[in-house]
Design a protein around this nucleic acid. Sequence first.
DNA 1: GTTAGGG
DNA 2: CCCTAAC
Length: 615
Amino acid sequence: MVFKRKLDCVSVAFDYPNIPRAPRSCRRKVQNKRTDDDDDAKMCAMDLLASLAGKILEEGQSSSASSNAFEGNAHENFGKEVKTEREDHDKPLKSESSDQGNSVSMPTYENTSDKCVVNSFSFPDNDGILERTPPMSDHKKIHGETGDVYVNPGFEQREATGGLTANTCNLEDKAALDVQFPKPVCVDGDDLKSPSCVNMTSNGSLARHGNHTNLVRDDDEKLYSSRKCSNKFTSYKSPAIRRIRKSKYSKQVSKDFGHYRADVGIKALYRKRKSCYGYNAWKHETIYKRRRSPDRSSVVTSDGGLSNGSVSKLPEKRKSVKLSIKSFRIPELFIEVPETATVGSLKRTVMEAVSVLLSGGIRVGVLVHGKKVRDDKRTLSQTGISSEENLTNLGFTLEPGGTSKVPIPLCSDDPVVPPTPTELTSLCERSAAASPNADDVINSASIVDNNLELVPYQSEISVDEPSSDSRALVPLPALEEVKALAIVPLNQKPKRTELAQRRARRPFSVTEVEALVQAVEELGTGRWRDVKLRAFENADHRTYVDLKDKWKTLVHTASISPQQRRGEPVPQEVLDRVLKAYGYWSQHQGKHQARGAAKDPDMNRGRALDSGVSV
DNA sequence: GTTAGGG
DNA sequence: CCCTAAC
């Protein structure tokens, strides 16, 4: 190996104390003994470590204050909130989750809980700028043996009344609900940039409050992945989502789920990236975000501060189409709450469902005369959308999932066989015009009043596990399947909302890296627990797995050209030590560690022998 | 609970 | 950073 060869001709700059690998059960004791040891060198090491720890702490504080903005109080508070809730959930959920494993029916839930199907959120026309579009479709109610199935055919335009309209809602049964957002999402002002490219950009107002960013970002993410997944998809820019104004609900989202959403969003990103990028995809997070920026600027617009402002200045190259969206029909959300649940808890449950839906990424479908427009490359005029036309024939759908989402009709043939990556890619493209039946199904099992556990599957599954997409996309028409969907988590390991959270990324500082390298030099690469105890004992956020992972990346970093390295540059000297130690310990690993260290002429000569430890 | 390795 | 098999 390169490393080894290098190792042979490089003089050793550090000592390798001969620390025998003790049985795990005694290692902690050994560690303690070592600490008490009078050995000068070790004391020096401890001093060094102490100072290092100080630096680390210092750095940690400053970095968390400056760079990790989203780890702030909200983060902490949210975690606490979740934790509190979890405690309430845990017990009942345990039995639930274990039961849910593979069984197909859970009569208990049928009997004890009420289910609602949330079909659409609409936005009151509060700005007077919205134009009406007529209903494009309706609920289709399919009657079954034990319940009703609401098949959501897609877009539905709702009268905007500003309140909660429960047209068919009956809390004693599954019910179809129309839920309206207090504030609208408006779309208008599209420019046609080229005849062959539907490049919708927005030029309208922007949300004045913070909450819009999430949605915009999600949209962006989705957009990005779409592109990644399909080269043919390049002409699709984005629907112009102009504004999402803060509301009671959105505030709630922001407050209660802001962090969650952000996190899940990242997770979703990660998963999507992973499926696209493969190995070490998480490394691309930063780049990914950077890359998205240009798109964002074309989506978010002018009057709120996030905009680029360029859109509205675009000269009229041709006739533009102005339209407004008054309400989106959302994918169905199955919600299950007990009769004893409060209205507040119901709200929260819907909230969560929506949050999950959004966090999983959403996609916009376009309907013209009630028909899905599947070809994203067609121009608006080619599609029959023009200023001359009566735009009341134009409709939109909000569909769950990003690009990994496979529309139901496309995978209904065999819902068990996961799509191959190739299939996914091709489906991604088509998914832009996905069936409105690609409903999002969310099962919410209720435990105690005010404590509703949300078990999202589809949106999360679709993002987290592309391979299980097809399962998540089992069509709804058959009642049995609906029951299964509503009651049995589709993925083997249901991911609770809490579990969907990902630890914040915390790049290692050079100081930390040095401490790590130091420890590995001394302890080897197979004793991460000891490494942790030695060099990161007080760094709670660094687990030994983290250290192991960091070492892995360090070795990789050290073996690539400096140009390919990212993040805070690690001094070459440190990287050299990494390679050296890597080479050494890969040569003297396992049970031969101690002996190898003692025998190696370049490393630590005599030291191991001095320690008197033998294997 | 740790380690190792793939994702 | 996550997940999990293997120990």
